[in-house]
Design a protein around this nucleic acid. Structure first.
Length: 872
RNA sequence: GCGGGCGUGGUGAAAUGGUAGACACAAGGGACUUAAAAUCCCUCGGCGAUAGCCGUGCGGGUUCGAGCCCCGCCGCCCGCACCA
């Protein structure tokens, strides 16, 4: 019988409408069933979705639909990370308001997302640029101010000269702005900060509990927080005319090497350096040089260790009567530790390089295990390995760890210049999170500056502080600050003239709590704590690994801040995290070296050879390497075009197949064609199965024949292992399982026309199960087939099929037979056959007798139901 | 430099220490067709063409048995990077 081709263009919008009308994916906060919260990182509304989004949302949707079928109350919302600089750039380029541009983009992308058939609860949609959202962020900012979580301080900031704004440390990549790519400059500004460093220890130690996160991400966060334990040491300065300062503080993680110290070094930005530079021309020139170098981080990598002697000396803290020279060195950072170090050249590579250059002593004090004290010397490489301390007075013979403790104890209780001489201290690399941005298109910081009363939060009754609509972007910089009237207000305390804060918040603040807002998106408070605590944490969060530090660390912090201010009752927002790989595609170049879009290339295949030519001109095209899809390389595929050509199901299915989700996925035309063929194949299988059933409706069905029994086993096993694979997010394996089931069913449906009765029930049951396994991945096709099979209701509402455990086990097993570890044959035995019986059987087999050739086996290893290994 | 990950057919990839290459793509052959598309069937790691040998980046080791565990190399990718 001929079956009409499945037409996704017709069926997909139809089912989307049906789900919409039935409110199938709207989650209730009052549902008593077990909850499951699945979330994909919400998109920035750039105007179009790209294939990376498709992959991300396809994965999340499989998880969401699967757990729905498992009877859980699933929350699967979507929103928009809608503040940010591109809207301002668009405003300048197109003379539109950032809000107009953003909202139009949201509308366009919402339509695109809806065409994918995702099981999203659109009733909870939020956009961070709307006052309905950001007013709550302002309220929380005020709460956080009251709770002491916010601070305002003058600090050296990373200034992006292109975007004309400040960047957080995390947003500077290789010395360049994360968005603009421009070299970042250092400026002194007064900024608002979230005191994330207060939570450094908690954010670090809680990583151990995030067992459903990729180890890679946890490691990256650990490194970013950068905990180090050491000693804060005071050195007494030898009195000098150059300064009144009497002591210097250094931080070290290697106090055990104190006897190997040969100099002290200050950062170019150290207060004492600044003081000395005023009267020391050589020094001030060196400081200036360091600052010039400071902006070009690339060069820092290989930069020579350089320094200038200050003329000052400190007293050696453990060697009576000895002194150490004080240098200013280019490799000492001001914003780590105390901005000063003691150099122990023998056991630190940087210190060694420096010492060699300036001819300072190199005194080894840690003898590597197995080395000889008399002959051990330091060459060009510092020794940082473990060993025992020597050349070190009272520390001699101790291990490195013992010596660290001993030094700490030695200095405990002593003071220098009125300060403890040695204090055990923990240092973190993590800095406070600077959230001030000198931009218009962001959440206004709800603060008023009054000359009389100081800096005050806006009273909550006056929230939201709404962005003015009438702004112009003629001048570079902050349009909010340029607005003629907006910032002029009366002080909420004294009523006098005052000024609004014109900084807006870093957009990473917006995305640090949206997952909580989704739990009660229309609430008049930021959250309804009981509701938030019901849904949170997010059970499965899915997104790109590029957010491993910024977004995920900020969200972890912000959740703690929300807990401290009573908005939620938990610390960790994301129980399970999954980071998907990128979507890649071949690249193409024309003869003139210009990138060419895949849609403009025609391919000729000659055996294994593949060549390309231009679709219009016929000019040869060079097929290049496979790279991340990017506009600049033009190797992008437009989701709209794919959906229009093949349908959303095909795109989703292809994206889930082939590659493990954490790895990069290569989009190919051939691959999507294959996925499309599979879609038609399933449709034909359903059609043929239905026609077989109709033909044989008058035949009494008998018990399963052998084929039928096998088919049932395959189907039940597929249900079992697909469930397992989806739960483990191994979508590519789930897809392979479904292919296998489909192949078995198609084969069987073809044969069945001859002798159907004893097999039809198993076939029909298998097809029904197949459709249910497909439902999370190709939901539209599944609904169509479900209806075609005459099943009541929607497959989207159908429970996950039951598995008969008896069908998962075989009553016989095939055991491979190895001779000396190499496979030489196999034997089929009843499951659970005793080793002795297997041995008897194997040794009587002709094949084995032949190979043994009369020799007696030395040993026979038999793992019941698994394998036989005969050693000769 | 430090930390992490990965090296398996022409390609994407499977494989609780137990039959390496499931599943898919590409390729080749055939059937159907006036023809094409679609569909279906067969072949598909290499060398032999017989019941054989070799094969998971390279070299060792542990084990009855190693793609998987251990040691040492080589290569690629990612993150951090003068953090004292």
């Amino acid at each position: 019988m001929s079956v009409e081709r499945y037409n996704p263009r017709e069926m997909e919008p139809k089912w989307q409408q049906v789900w919409d009308d039935a409110r199938s994916f709207v989650a209730s906060n009052d549902d008593k069933r077990e909850k499951y919260y699945v979330l994909e990182m919400f998109p920035y509304p750039s105007g179009r979705i790209h294939m990376g989004h498709v992959r991300n949302y396809a994965m999340g949707d499989v998880v969401a639909r699967y757990h729905r079928a498992r009877g859980k109350n699933v929350l699967h919302p979507m929103g928009w990370d809608a503040f940010g600089l591109p809207a301002e750039n668009a405003a300048i380029e197109r003379k539109t308001h950032p809000g107009t541009w953003t909202r139009a983009n949201i509308a366009a992308m919402r339509t695109q997302l809806k065409s994918m058939g995702l099981s999203l609860d659109w009733s909870r949609e939020i956009a961070t640029c709307e006052p309905e959202y950001y007013q709550h962020q302002q309220a929380m900012f005020i709460d956080m101010m009251a709770a002491g979580l916010v601070t305002r301080k003058q600090s050296k900031v990373n200034w992006d000269p292109v975007d004309m704004t400040v960047l957080a440390n995390e947003q500077v990549i290789d010395g360049k702005g994360w968005r603009s790519g421009a070299p970042v400059e250092q400026r002194e500004l007064t900024q608002w900060f979230f005191k994330i460093s207060d939570y450094a220890e908690d954010l670090l130690s809680a990583l151990d509990g995030l067992t459903d996160w990729p180890e890679k991400v946890r490691t990256m966060q650990r490194n970013w927080i950068g905990k180090s334990e050491g000693l804060r040491l005071q050195f007494e300065l030898v009195a000098s005319d150059a300064t009144a300062v009497q002591s210097l503080e250094v931080f070290t993680t290697r106090p055990d090497t104190i006897f190997g110290a040969s100099f002290l070094a200050l950062s170019a930005d150290h207060p004492l350096t600044t003081e000395l530079a005023k009267t020391n021309a050589v020094l001030s020139e060196f400081v200036a040089e360091c600052h010039r170098q400071g902006t070009a981080t690339e060069a820092l990598e290989k930069a020579e260790k350089k320094g200038v002697f200050t003329g000052l000396y400190v007293k050696h803290p453990v060697l009576e009567g000895q002194t150490l020279p004080v240098y200013v060195a280019n490799f000492v950072l001001m914003d780590y530790g105390t901005g000063a170090i003691f150099g122990c050249p023998a056991h630190d590579q940087r210190d060694l390089d420096f010492a060699r250059k300036y001819d300072l002593p190199v005194i080894p004090v840690v003898l590597p295990n197995g080395a000889d004290a008399a002959s051990f010397v330091i060459g060009d490489e510092a020794n940082v390995d473990a060993g025992h301390i020597y050349n070190s007075g009272f520390l001699d013979g101790l291990t490195v760890d013992e010596a660290k403790k001993a030094v700490a104890e030695h200095f405990a209780g002593r003071t220098v210049d009125g300060k403890p001489q040695g204090k055990v201290e923990v240092n973190y690399r993590l800095r406070d999170w600077g959230v001030s941005r000198q931009r218009y298109w962001g959440c206004p910081i709800p603060v008023i500056h009054c000359e009389v009363c100081g800096t005050l939060p806006v009273p909550k009754k006056d929230l939201p502080v709404v962005l003015p609509e009438d702004v112009s972007f003629d001048k570079p910089g902050n349009a909010l600050d340029h607005h003629p009237t907006w910032k002029h207000v009366n002080c909420p305390q004294c009523g006098g003239a005052a000024r609004r804060e014109t900084d807006t918040m870093d957009t990473f603040v917006d995305s640090s709590w949206y997952f909580a807002r989704f739990t009660a998106p229309q609430a008049e408070t930021p959250t309804i704590p009981a509701v938030a605590d019901h849904w949170l944490p997010v059970d499965q969060y899915i997104g790109g690994v590029e957010h491993a530090i910024l977004h995920l660390l900020y969200s972890r912090y912000f959740t703690r801040a929300m807990k401290a201010t009573g908005h939620v009752g938990l610390d960790e927002p994301f129980k399970g995290l999954f980071t998907q790989g990128m979507v890649t595609h071949e690249t193409y170049k024309s003869e003139t070296g210009e990138w060419v879009n895949p849609t403009e290339v025609l391919f000729d295949t000659n055996g294994e050879q593949r060549t390309g030519r231009h679709i219009d001109s016929g000019a040869p095209i060079t097929i290049g390497s496979v790279e991340k899809m990017s506009k600049s390389k033009k190797n992008v595929v437009d989701p709209d075009e794919i959906v229009a050509t093949y349908g959303a199901d095909t795109a989703r299915w292809f994206m889930l197949s082939d590659s493990p989700p954490e790895r990069d996925f290569q989009w190919t035309e051939a691959g999507v064609e294959g996925a499309s063929r599979f879609q038609q194949r399933v449709w034909r299988l359903v059609g043929e199965t239905i026609s077989l059933i109709k033909q044989s409706s008058d035949i009494v069905r008998t018990a399963d024949d052998e084929e039928g029994k096998t088919l049932r086993k395959i189907a039940h096993r597929a249900v079992h292992s697909v469930a397992d694979d989806i739960e483990g997010l191994r979508f590519n394996r789930a897809v392979a399982q479904i292919y296998e089931l489909t192949n078995a069913l198609v084969r069987s449906a073809g044969i069945a026309s001859a002798a159907p009765a004893s097999r039809l029930d198993a076939l029909a049951d298998g097809v029904e199960r197949l459709i249910q396994l497909l439902a999370p991945m190709m939901p539209h096709l599944a609904e169509t087939c479900w209806a075609e099979l005459g099943k009541a209701g929607l497959v989207a509402d159908a429970p996950w099929p039951e598995v008969d455990p008896a069908l998962l086990v075989d009553d016989s097993v095939t055991m491979p037979i190895q001779i000396n570890g190499k496979r030489r044959g196999e034997v089929v035995v009843a499951k659970g056959t005793a080793a002795a019986d297997v041995e008897k059987l194997v040794l009587s087999m002709d094949e084995i007798v032949r190979i043994l050739d009369g020799k007696a086996p030395k040993k026979i290893v038999i793992v019941p139901d698994r394998i036989v290994n005969v050693v000769i």
